[in-house]
Computed example of a mutant assay.
Amino acid sequence: MASPSLLVGQPLLAPLLPVLAQTYDVIALWDAPGPERLATVDALIWAGEFPLDRTLMDAMPRLALIACFTVGYDGVDLALAHSRGIAVTHAGDANAEDVADHAIGLMIAHRRWIVEGDRHLRAGHWTIQAKTRTHSMASARLGIVGMGSIGIAVAQRAQAMKMQIAWWGPRAKPQLPWPRTQDLGALARDSDILVIAARADESNRRMISAPILDLLGPEGLLVNVARGQLVDEAALIDALKAGRLGGAAIDVFDPEPTDPTHWSNVPNVVLTPHIGGATHEAVGRMAQMLLANLAAHFGGTPLPSPVRD
Rank of each mutant, 00 (worst) to 15 (best):
M1G: 14
A2G: 10
A2V: 14
S3C: 15
S3V: 11
P4F: 10
P4L: 09
P4E: 08
P4A: 11
P4G: 13
S5C: 15
S5W: 03
L6Y: 02
L6P: 00
L6G: 05
L7M: 13
L7D: 00
L7N: 00
L7K: 00
L7G: 00
V8I: 14
V8P: 03
V8W: 01
V8A: 06
V8M: 08
G9H: 07
G9V: 03
G9S: 13
G9W: 02
G9A: 14
G9C: 04
G9N: 05
G9K: 02
Q10L: 06
Q10D: 06
Q10N: 03
P11N: 14
P11V: 06
L12C: 12
L12H: 12
P15T: 10
P15L: 11
L16D: 08
L16G: 08
L17H: 15
P18T: 15
P18R: 13
P18F: 10
P18E: 08
P18D: 13
P18I: 14
L20I: 09
A21I: 12
A21D: 15
Q22P: 03
Q22Y: 05
T23W: 07
T23M: 07
V26W: 07
V26E: 10
I27W: 03
I27G: 01
I27E: 03
A28W: 11
L29Q: 10
W30E: 09
W30Y: 15
W30D: 14
D31V: 09
P33I: 01
P33N: 03
P33D: 02
G34Q: 05
G34A: 09
G34K: 04
P35V: 06
E36T: 05
E36F: 03
E36P: 01
E36M: 06
E36N: 09
R37P: 03
A39V: 06
A39C: 07
A39N: 09
T40P: 02
T40L: 08
T40M: 04
V41N: 02
D42E: 11
A43W: 00
A43S: 07
A43F: 01
A43R: 00
L44E: 02
L44A: 04
I45C: 01
I45S: 01
W46P: 01
W46A: 01
W46K: 02
W46D: 00
W46T: 00
A47C: 09
A47T: 09
A47K: 03
G48C: 06
G48Q: 05
G48F: 03
G48P: 04
G48Y: 02
G48M: 04
G48D: 05
F50H: 09
F50E: 09
F50R: 10
F50M: 07
F50S: 07
